[in-house]
Every structure is written in structure tokens, then in C-alpha cells.
């Protein structure tokens, strides 16, 4: 699934590890989501969106990567 995670993270100056710690997942999980190799569950997608103060649709566009 396409997402703007890498861009949003870069805007805030966060490393993958920083975001991973904030949403309580491993760095590999952040990398897998960013590169479209893993589609997050609904609860994780909400957690990610909340961390950026955005809606899910503003982070994920629902189309396959």
C-alpha cells in the first residue's frame, strides 16, 4: 500500500528508530511499512496517523505500492 511515511518522517527529522519507538514497533517494521512490504493493521495505521496528527487517509492512500 502506498504511503507518505518516509516523507512525513523526514519533515519532522525523525529516524526510523525514532518513529519505531514512538509507535512501539521495531525499526524493521517501520522499514517494511515504508517500503510497502507490509500493510499495517488498522490499529497500527491509526497509531501511525495519530503520531503525525493526521488522518489515516493523509498517511496511506489505499492503493498497492
Amino acid at each position: 500500500m502506498n504511503n507518505r511515511l518516509r516523507l512525513l518522517r523526514a519533515e519532522r527529522g525523525w529516524s526510523q528508530a525514532e518513529l519505531a519507538g514512538r509507535i512501539d514497533v521495531s525499526r524493521q517494521a517501520v522499514n517494511a511499512i515504508e517500503t510497502g512490504k507490509h500493510d499495517p493493521s488498522l490499529s497500527l495505521a491509526f497509531r501511525i496517523a495519530r503520531e503525525f496528527d493526521l488522518s489515516i487517509e493523509q498517511v496511506f492512500d489505499g492503493r498497492d505500492a
Binding site: A20, G21, R22, D24, S26, R27
Partner: peptide
């Protein structure tokens, strides 16, 4: 408050 990287280190 702990940074995300610190929280990740503790988690690991």
C-alpha cells in the same frame, strides 16, 4: 519524556 529512540532501546 523519553525519545522514540530511547523507548526503542528499552523495548529491545
Amino acid at each position: 519524556p523519553l525519545s522514540g529512540e530511547d523507548r526503542l532501546r528499552r523495548r529491545r
